[in-house]
Design a binder for these strands. Structure first.
Lengths: 326, 326
DNA sequence: TTGAAAGCGCTAACAA
DNA sequence: TTGTTAGCGCTTTCAA
């Protein structure tokens, strides 16, 4: 049978209160503590988290909601979140929303059932309605109302850098290729940043901006490139889109670097020790995870925190741009 | 303030027991149920999982321990596990062990603290010592003692299929390239299966089998291929190893299909809608997740279950073998 | 410094 | 069918 605090108290010849104090590191006479720890060891006692949670209303668990863990960007993020959390003795509850708003809501309910202390969410539905001001919630890349804290990479600057690097490498005819979500989010700024630089340089970029969900992506890419045959510098809204573009252009017998250069966004890798899949604007995933965790824990313990955290991105040369000397 | 069951009972003019029955779907007079549900709605009542867990000793949560979620095979597996679990109203606690035995043990402790009802583990340390027979634990790919249930793909057959397909495609000089973990696990059977077919066909394959962790992988690959210049059919223990091999051979100016064919293992993809990275033996990840969940839940509810589940694998043609007519 | 005791919100056994 | 009540194992006053 599982030993309880009462058993420990009995064996040690003290009250349960004292055992509780020892467990929680509250001042106790050394001799007493020793007796208690001995009894704990002897009985192989483990405090029951549920009884504790009932009293304290804390679960030491954070939920992470993301579209799907089966995606290198999200799984990298989840990896670092778990890492930061476990260092602080918190647990990670994982939820794939699959873009399913119901599932997102359900997890938000769970906070009220005191199953989790807070939520870090990469959500793309209108869950903001279900987030009340006092519910610890940190949004990634998604700027809801004034109430909701968020952490995001500097998408605008990323777009600008992409344009800069393309032009530095001699590209003349630029294009932006991306998709637009029905729900406003920070990734749209990538396009804005790209345009900003083009405007400065008096370049007029071509644009293929598709509404999500995108049907017949390949056909649309093919059609776009057929009507814009002279493009030599492409900025894709993310690495996966970039990969699709490369795939499509291959069918037109055009290849990266030789016929055009392309920069993606995210800095996606298959795994920690794998290379970037293309030249890209890397998001500071580790830092984003770090700040998300910091923020959510600060919210929970009522400490101060920044409502908006904007983290810098960086260009990483991959195999799809010309290497140049600096 | 958060409403409790008592509040609901008072508002509905019934006892708390009745409210509890309504919540748990136990038979109650219709009129009563209506009063109660109305009160629940009115007060926005949510049952507290901690109080419930304290009584029932159930958390409806399963822990998933894996080396790192930042790896497409594991994240695909986690994706399906979460999916199966959430369908059955269970939650998923995620743990990256990073090969850290301490962290694995810590999670096993959590079961005793009644934080999780069971564990699905892809572990590569000797945690089996900490798994007692009555603790619900399902191991993936790892065959401990007789006590521990496990789910695995048919690695032996996979190796055999790889050899078969290579030979069918005209390969004459075969090689196996892999690593061996200090902890016994099912992946070693891949090599055995490969050898078995070779033996049948009276082929003598070359072998590069490295002890993990593998230092200077590229040098070792380069050296191996320098001393075995005529290899034309390679079986890599997993897709990532396959990728490394391709990378290395590129430096020797050898390319897949043109100069050699190669088959990996796992069936890794960057994400659900991405292609396989190479010709490969695909593990039935979804089925593995399904059976893991089935098994762990059966263990928890004391139903019958299979101690060993072996699932079939399949060859998937990718870009690193010659397409042939069947 | 410590023990005793009151509950946290729920479930389930027992009565009615 | 329903209300009452005794805990589940812990934390946290309140006294001693």
């Amino acid at each position: 049978m599982k030993a309880t605090m009462k058993d420990v108290a009995a064996l040690a010849g003290v009250g349960v209160g004292t055992v509780s104090r020892v467990i929680n590191g509250v001042r106790v006479k050394d001799a007493t503590r020793e007796k208690v720890t001995a009894a704990i060891k002897e009985l192989n006692y483990e405090p029951d988290e549920y009884a504790r949670g009932l009293k304290t209303n804390k679960s030491n668990t954070i939920a992470l909601i993301l579209p799907t863990i089966w995606h290198p960007f999200f799984s990298e993020f989840a990896y670092f979140v778990e890492d930061e959390l476990s260092e602080r003795n918190y647990k990670l509850l994982l939820c794939n929303s699959d873009g399913n708003a119901e599932k997102e809501k359900e997890y938000i309910q769970m906070v009220k059932q005191s199953k989790v202390d807070g939520i870090i969410g990469i959500t793309y539905s209108d869950v903001d309605k279900y987030i009340s001001a006092n519910l610890p919630f940190v949004s990634i890349d998604r700027h809801f109302s004034e109430e909701v804290a968020y952490v995001t990479a500097d998408n605008f600057m990323g777009g600008k850098i992409a344009a800069t690097e393309l032009v530095r490498r001699g590209c003349q005819k630029l294009a932006y290729i991306g998709g637009t979500s029905p729900y406003p989010n920070e990734t749209n700024n990538r396009k804005q940043g790209f345009y900003e630089f083009c405007l400065q340089e008096e370049i007029i970029p071509s644009t293929l901006d598709m509404f999500e969900p995108i049907a017949h992506l390949e056909e649309r890419l093919l059609h776009f490139f057929a009507t814009h045959p002279d493009l030599d510098g492409i900025f894709a809204v993310n690495d996966f889109m970039g990969l699709k573009v490369i795939e499509a252009l291959k069918k037109l017998d055009k290849y990266p670097v030789k016929d055009y250069q392309i920069i993606g966004f995210d800095g996606v890798k298959m795994a920690a020790d794998q290379p970037f899949v293309m030249s890209t604007i890397v998001q500071p995933v580790h830092e984003m995870a770090y700040h998300s965790v910091q923020t959510i824990l600060a919210m929970i313990s009522n400490e101060d925190f920044h409502k908006r955290i904007l983290l810098p991105v960086a260009f990483q040369e991959g195999s799809t741009t010309k290497a140049i000397n600096h």
